[in-house]
């Protein structure tokens, strides 16, 4: 009978270790072949939410629509061939390591395309600073900040110095944790009227954003310094290492910011549950958005649309179209004579 290990050996052709019956290194390969795409499963929906919200609230079409889609596809594909960058210290062949350095650094290209397109979408836009918009811009900020340290960690020669230190903790909490949670908050603030038919309180939203944003950087930015000094992650205490004694202050600062950030989340939780029951009734299309979800009645009925399904005539980003009466044209409005669809089909 063929066991699992033989099966894997057939699939991967060579065995990572000649250790019949499984090996810790094989587990790490399999884990990170799952784990790296997993972090993009976390990040990509947040980027999608951000694309919608930044375009709507800048009152501009998303800049580089096709490049944005291409970058998402590229990130999705590349995420499957970079898993080895988690394993530079497992004793893998250094040549294989340099292949993973190359593929990992390639991800910087579509990521930078996305970051620049967000900024160019904002550029000269009529920006509506809703709480959702602030969280989306916060996502762009943390995506760039965390991405920059990603370049350092992707390089095997640099990674060896900070492997399994707080530098790594800072990197992935900013680029994945903060970005994804900001995307989630942005989505909740933006689509709350659709989900619960009431508006969330804007002032509490602003307070929640600014305290969260400042405290989140207060938590994770100093961790870079701990990591560069060599403080390892997952240790119960570092009091046995005299060389880290002068870094205790940084840990205290981080914890104080963490407590403040945690308390700020109760602003959100209060706002969320209060608004479900007591929030102001939501208008049909509170953000003057083009997409189809705002054409359904504000009633959460089965089947979404009471009559026939809507017909889509144009792309979702006809904001501030020259010559148009309003600064948005819903997707259900037919093209006028001689009008070109922004999506290019």
């Amino acid at each position: 009978m063929v066991n699992f290990y033989d099966f894997i050996r057939c699939v991967f052709i060579i065995s990572p270790l000649d250790n019949v019956g499984g090996s810790p290194v094989l587990f790490e390969h399999l884990f990170w072949f799952l784990g790296h795409p997993e972090v993009y499963i976390v990040l990509l929906p947040a980027l999608g939410i951000t694309s919608e919200i930044i375009s709507t609230n800048s009152r501009k079409p998303i800049f580089g629509y096709r490049a944005m889609i291409g970058s998402m596809l590229a990130i999705g594909f590349l995420s499957f061939i970079v898993w080895g960058h988690h394993m530079f210290l497992t004793g893998m062949n250094p040549f294989l390591g340099s292949v993973f350095v190359f593929t990992t650094l390639l991800i910087a290209i579509p990521s930078a395309v996305k970051a620049f397109n967000y900024i160019t979408t904002l550029w000269k836009g009529n920006i509506q600073y809703t709480p959702a918009m602030l969280f989306s811009i916060g996502l762009v900020s943390s995506f760039v900040t965390g991405g920059v340290t990603g370049i350092i960690l992707a390089d095997s020669t640099l990674d060896i110095n900070v492997h399994d230190t707080y530098f790594v903790v800072a990197h992935f909490h900013i680029v994945m944790g903060l970005s994804a949670i900001f995307g989630m908050f942005a989505g909740v603030y933006h689509w709350f009227p659709k989900m619960f038919l009431r508006m969330m309180n804007k002032k509490l939203g602003y307070l929640h954003f600014w305290v969260t944003f400042v405290c989140a950087y207060g938590v994770f930015f100093p961790m870079h310094f701990l990591g560069l000094a060599g403080v390892p992650r997952r240790y119960y205490t570092n009091s046995a290492f005299p060389m880290f004694d002068n870094l205790v202050d940084i840990n205290e600062i981080v914890t104080v910011f963490a407590i403040l950030a945690a308390l700020a989340q109760f602003i959100f939780i209060f706002n969320f549950f209060y608004s479900i029951f007591r929030g102001e009734k939501a208008p049909q299309n509170p953000w003057n958005s083009n997409t189809l979800e705002w054409t359904t009645p504000m009633a959460n009925i089965h089947g979404n649309w009471p009559g026939p399904l809507p017909v889509v005539h144009r792309w979702a980003y006809d904001y501030s179209k020259p010559g148009a009466e309003h600064d948005f044209i819903p997707q259900t409005v037919p093209l006028a004579d001689g009008e070109h669809d922004g999506g290019g089909h």
Partner: peptide, 9 residues
Amino acid sequence: IPYQVGARD
């Protein structure tokens, strides 16, 4: 997904 593609569910 159902909302933005115009599906009932």
